[in-house]
Structure formats: C-alpha cells, structure tokens
Write a protein that binds this DNA or RNA. Structure first.
Length: 419
DNA sequence: TCTGGGGTCCTAGGACCC
DNA sequence: TCTGGGGTCCTAGGACCC
C-alpha cells in the first residue's frame, strides 16, 4: 500500500501556526510581488476566492470579508515543511517527498497494521508537534492514494482526515465520484479532449481501451490508467540531482534601461550559481530570457530568450554572471518596458569531474573563492557577499507588503511568550 | 498601476552516421 | 526512367505537477 500525505492549505496553515487568532478566519497567501493568490484557507475558499486570483482585482472582496492577506514567506514554509517531513519519515523507511507539502509513504510489510489507526496517528502527531493539519490517503497504488487523499480532505469530518481504498468496491465508488479534471496527471488539455468524447469521471477513463489511451495521452497516460485500475505501475521515486535550475522573477515595476536588466540578470545568475554548488554540479549551458508584460495588450510586446553554450563547465557565480550578461546584450532591444527576466542553467556535469579544456581558460581559483563566499553567506545571511555588478542594497526587489516574521529560522523573529 | 516561480517527462522531427 | 535501410542524438514544443 501507498499513503499520500498532504498538508491542508499548507502556506495558509503555516501562517496560522504563529497566529492562532486567525483560526476559523479567511487567510490567503500571495505569490512573489504580492501578485496573485497561491494559497487559501477553507474560509477563504468559501467566500469565493479562486486559486491564482490577481490580488488587485480581489482587494474589495478581501476587505468585505476581513480576509487576512500574507506575502509569501518561503523561509517559514520551507522550514515547516522539513519539520513535517521529519515526523512522517518515522512511519516507514520508504518515503518520497513529492513537493513542499506532500509525500508518498510506501507501506510494504504493514499487512498486520491497522492502517486507519496508523494514518490517524500521523495526523495527530503532525498537528500536535507542528500545528499543521494533514490529510492521509491510503491505497494499493500511488494514483489511487491521491484519490483517497482527496476524499479524506473533502470529507474531513466523516473520515477524520484518513481514507483507505482497500477493496474494488471502494475503488470503483471513488473513481466514479472523481471528476476527470481532478485526476492526478490529467491537465487542462487532456481533460478537454476526454470530455469531448464523453469521459466525465476517473472511472470512465479506466474503461477506455489501452491502445486508445496510449495514442491520445502517450505512455504517461497509459501508466496512469493502470495505476487507477489498481495495478501498481508507478513506484516511489528517489531524489535525483536537478537537471535544470532556474531563477526568474517579475519586476515590481517596468524596466526600460539595459542597466536595470543587467543588474537583475547578474543577480539571477549568482543565485543559480549558489544552487548549482549546493548540489555539486557545474553547468555547460545557460539560457537568459526577458519579456514585457504579456497581460498588457496596450503595450508593445517583446519576448526573447537565448541559449549560450559555455566554453567550459562552471558553477562560479562570477563566470555565470559574465556569460549571462553577455547573452542579455544579444537579446536586449531598447524601447520596451520589461516586466520579467530569468536565468536557467542546464546541461550539468558533476563538479568533481570536470573535463579540462585545451583552449579556454577556466580559472580554478574560483572554486575556493566560491566556497569562501558560500560559507560567509551561510553565517552572515543570504547574499551578504555579492558581486559588484549586483545592486549593493537590495537583492530581490519584490513587493512584499504583508510579510510575516521568519518565526522558525531567524533568532530575532522568535515569538515572545508572556506569562 | 497591479496578473508567481520552479520543476519533470515524452514525442516528433531534423541532422547526422554507416 | 531508375535514388535503401537502419540507426543515434539532439532539440523544441507540448503536456503535466506543486
């Protein structure tokens, strides 16, 4: 059996842990730049705030319903996630952390356990130790555990947060209940096409012919179909080093000058360098992109990206910054109002066996220099040591008007308790 | 005024090889 | 008149996830 454990309204719940006065009240968390809604408490969902709602369009609704609004506080969410995952890792040796708020637990050899009690135990322990409410779905396959989790969450009162699919009757009932749009792995495109031929539920989907599914949804869709039929096709996936690393941001305002973009691109490249060094990789190529605000049809639009093959593999922030800015020069066009840019590094090789090049000079002194910078930043704070090409004052330049304290990761933000 | 960020996998088609 | 067959690798684009 597999369990899929999912934190309820994760970001909103994290904010509530340190603001218990907000329990029972509508809470939303906004994306970077306070752009759109990326998490909602049940109360916020109930007053009709959709996922992805642009914050400026919903300001009135927020006020009318006394919705508590927070800027994204990823330092807090990342730390809370680790705490939750640590607790869950004690329930089985086989675990896959699937996202910041979800994990799969493989329950092999648990035949003599009462899995419902086991799931309830997880819920109680996680909420007691972290304050985060979770839901647990248990079933013979990963895709079915996702379905079970949905039921556990939707009918939290009746299920107590745990639902198990352990018979074919329960499986079929669950699949007939689940709309095709809500199936894990069926996105907008596929669900539109499936609905056009009369497939309304997950159950309908499992009744389709294998060859047809393979033709329409490729091998991924066929695997999903089998998994939903109860034939375990998807197994736990072990954490692999990343194949791409990106740092991209929208700007708080429109940038028209090359110099503004140059500074941002340099900062993004430095950030990619840090992430590369964390996983011990060097990249052999990188992409830089810039574009104007696609939502504003009244502005002249421009959007371009460029991929640069590097002369040698590197994870040096200095080299990455240099190559990224060179790339930016090739695609920058004056006269446009730029809203977003990004650097994506790709084509990795492990940092400990770098192919030496014959004609290009790779400065090996960067290796200890980067180590020193990383250590200093770890001690003194993120990006305290920067390149001169970066803005000396601000790093991300984001609009974050409703940012909560870093309760769990910054000693000066720790809560005070009065007795 | 204002609309996020970061990933994965698969496939088709082109370039190239013998 | 008449132009093969079987591969691999790479990339862009499309789909999906949170």
């Amino acid at each position: 059996m597999f369990a899929l454990v999912d934190c309820n309204n994760f970001y909103a719940s994290c904010e509530r842990v340190f603001r218990p006065d907000l329990n029972g009240k509508p809470v939303v968390v906004l994306s970077n730049n306070d752009g759109c809604v990326i998490a909602r408490s049940n109360e916020a969902k109930a007053v009709g705030i959709p996922m992805g709602a642009p914050a400026f369009e919903y300001e009135k609704l927020f006020k009318e319903n006394n919705v508590q609004v927070f800027s994204a506080n990823f330092a807090l969410y990342g730390d809370m996630s680790q705490r939750v995952m640590n607790i869950l890792s004690e329930y089985t040796p086989e675990m896959e952390i699937y996202s910041i708020d979800e994990c799969f637990l493989k329950l092999q050899g648990f035949e003599h356990f009462n899995l419902n009690d086991y799931g309830k135990h997880m819920c109680d322990k996680v909420v007691k130790w972290t304050g985060i409410p979770i839901s647990v779905g248990i079933a013979p396959t990963k895709a079915l555990s996702k379905v079970a989790n949905r039921i556990a969450k939707k009918y939290a009162k009746q299920t107590g947060g745990v639902y198990i699919i352990d018979s074919d009757e329960k499986r079929i009932k669950a699949l007939k209940w689940l709309k095709i749009d809500d199936v894990w792995g069926i996105g907008r495109q596929h669900s539109t096409r499936l609905k056009a031929i009369g497939i309304k539920t997950a159950y309908d989907f499992t009744q389709l012919d294998d060859l047809f599914v393979k033709k329409q949804l490729a091998i991924v869709g066929l695997r999903l179909k089998h998994d939903l039929q109860g034939i375990a096709t998807l197994d736990l996936e072990t954490a692999q080093p990343k194949k791409n690393i990106a740092t991209t941001r929208s700007f708080e305002s429109n940038y028209t000058e090359f110099e503004q973009l140059r500074e941002r691109v340099s900062t993004f490249a430095v950030s990619c360098g840090e992430k590369l060094r964390q996983q011990n990789s060097c990249c052999n190529s990188l992409m830089v992109f810039i574009h104007t605000n696609g939502h504003r049809k009244d502005f002249p639009q421009y959007s371009r990206n460029i991929v640069v093959k590097l002369p040698f593999a590197t994870n040096s922030s200095i080299e990455l910054s240099k190559f990224s800015v060179q790339a930016l020069k090739l695609i920058f066009k004056p006269g446009y109002a730029y809203k977003k840019a990004g650097v994506i590094v790709q084509d990795f090789t492990p940092a400990n066996h770098i192919q030496q090049t014959l004609f290009e000079y790779r400065d090996e002194r960067h290796v200890p220099l980067m180590q020193a910078i990383d250590r200093m930043n770890a001690i003194f704070g993120q990006q305290k040591i920067r390149l001169a090409s970066q803005d000396p004052k601000r790093v991300w330049k984001m609009k974050q008007e409703k940012l909560s304290p870093q309760y769990t990761t910054n000693l000066s933000d720790i809560i005070t308790i009065r007795l």
